[in-house]
Design a protein around this nucleic acid. Sequence first.
RNA 1: GCACCCGUAGCUCAGUGGAUAGAGCAGCGGAUUUCUAAUCCGUUGGUCGCGUGUUCGAAUCACGCCGGGUGCGCCA
Length: 580
Amino acid sequence: MKIPQDWIFEKLKETLSEKFGQTDYIPLVEPCSNPSFGDYQTNIAFLMAGQLKENPRKLAEEFARIIGENSVTFYPEVGGNGFINFRVKPKAYLNAFLAIRSDPRLGIEQTKEPQTIVIDFSSPNIAKELHVGHLRSTILGDVLRRLNLFLGHRVIADNHLGDWGTQFGMVLLGYKKYGNRLALAEKPLEYLEGLYVRIQKEAKESERIKEEAKRELQKLQSGDSENLKLWDVFVHASLKELDKIYQKLNVKFDYSLGESVYNPMLPGVVEELLQKGIARYSEGAVCVFFNKDFPALADKPMIIQKTDGAYLYATTDIATLLFRLSNWQAQRIIYVTDSRQKLHFQQLFALARLLGIDIQLEHVSFGSILGEDKKPLKTREGTSIKLRELLEEAVNRAYQIIDEKRKDLSEDRKKEIANAVGIGALKYADLSQNRILDYIFSWEKLLSLEGNTAPYLLNAHVRICSILRKAASSGYGSSLGFTSLKFETDTLHPQEIELMKAVLSFKYSLFLAAKENSPHHLCNYLYNLAKVFHKFYEQCPVLGASTESSKQLRLAFCDFTQRTLSLGLELLGIEPLKEM
RNA sequence: GCACCCGUAGCUCAGUGGAUAGAGCAGCGGAUUUCUAAUCCGUUGGUCGCGUGUUCGAAUCACGCCGGGUGCGCCA
């Protein structure tokens, strides 16, 4: 659906082609850098001036004259050296709002070119507990899944589990040496990780242990029935525990195809690459070299088979890529992993090109989570923090705040709210930051009720819900169905206009977040919307509005803002609480 | 050694070719018999790491330097 900003864009394009005979320029229309200039600005005159060798100011004035005053904007003003500034008529905002307000998708169309997108995220090594390091991939990937689904794509969320790697050699050996069926049944992941750590330590000190672990792995990979049986037990125990965490985080997958699935395909993959001359033997290992077409990878070969015949992470990733292509007809694959794997994905993508695969491949990388000392977040003992414990602490801290502020609520309700606020705050702290950067983890900032935080957004949502509840109890039902009244635009409060402007621009934040795989654009938008709403809330009484039509219109603003916040939070994987 | 990422207010961060660089926190000063103050308003605070260039215009692009991080043939 068209909003004033779209209208301005189209008007400019129309003017370009009809009056200037230009179809190449794409005018940039954005909110004015300073509100005193107007609502929206465009730099089109600068773009054209360069090539046409004209004075930008003169061009801008010509645009202004041609467009003139119209149903959407007042007469455009030319500012600076050639900016064209548009001031939107309140009536145009109101019309756009009224046209959009009953749309369940809030005026956002589904894409006309749906793609099949595979998102590879979370992807932990199993037989070990999830730790902080898994948090970013898990929630970032989940948001990308939600976002692309909402925009109308076919999305396949695939948890590429590390269920076949070296850790199993250690765990198998550990279990055979110190195994305890009861302990395994009780706390599977903790127990398995304990075994892993123990053997890893022993292996560091003893070559013999190292060899034994390696042998257990080889036995597993060559189909030894005892080891396979144990492996199966370990995997299932791990998955059960993992699911608990995913459930707490409200993260869902369509598939959880681990590395073991691709294991049978690996010899064929290597064989094919050798045959095609893409790979060759080097120092006993099979390598892919990227000499000519990929200068950045010139001296960075990709090893796909070790001297001892074993396959690697890279080999599995190639098999996985081929699988996703042939079984799912993937048109785009997004890998959500930390930025240290950048080189690996450059190699993988380059190899895909060598194989003639030309689908969209993206590495959505992200930085590390640091402690307040700017070093990787660790426990006091120096071990990595378990995700399970991090979630518990977030919820506990939220509970303490709620317990303090809401003595009136039942115990169960307080727990529910603490859960949503704690987990939401944890997710939001991560998502609201540019993913490329490392970020510094701070409980204080996380659960603060001020600033760019989940609790602040939730609070705005809660307040609106409270108004809507009160309205409903006095007969205003769902404001979606409210009667058609005539709304006077000249009595609109500036904050009402601000609020309309804010809710109408929701779609741009979604498009940007999806295009750049960066949810923080959506967070910034929602934060601004919550701020604008709070201002409106301070200055414009809703239930106590001076006229009936004003009251109903303000209820409609509340309703639409509520739905926008609610959808935005849901896309971020945060539960939009109705009270807190 | 080479490659990539980062450097913006005391702190945490937005802003990646547009006008006078923004927010939050912290600090200071105000507002509440509330549509939930879990809020709002005002205010202090900047050689955008440094230098040179490209451009009508640079925090943003190019090159060089400084500082921090990450990666670089048998880990994932």
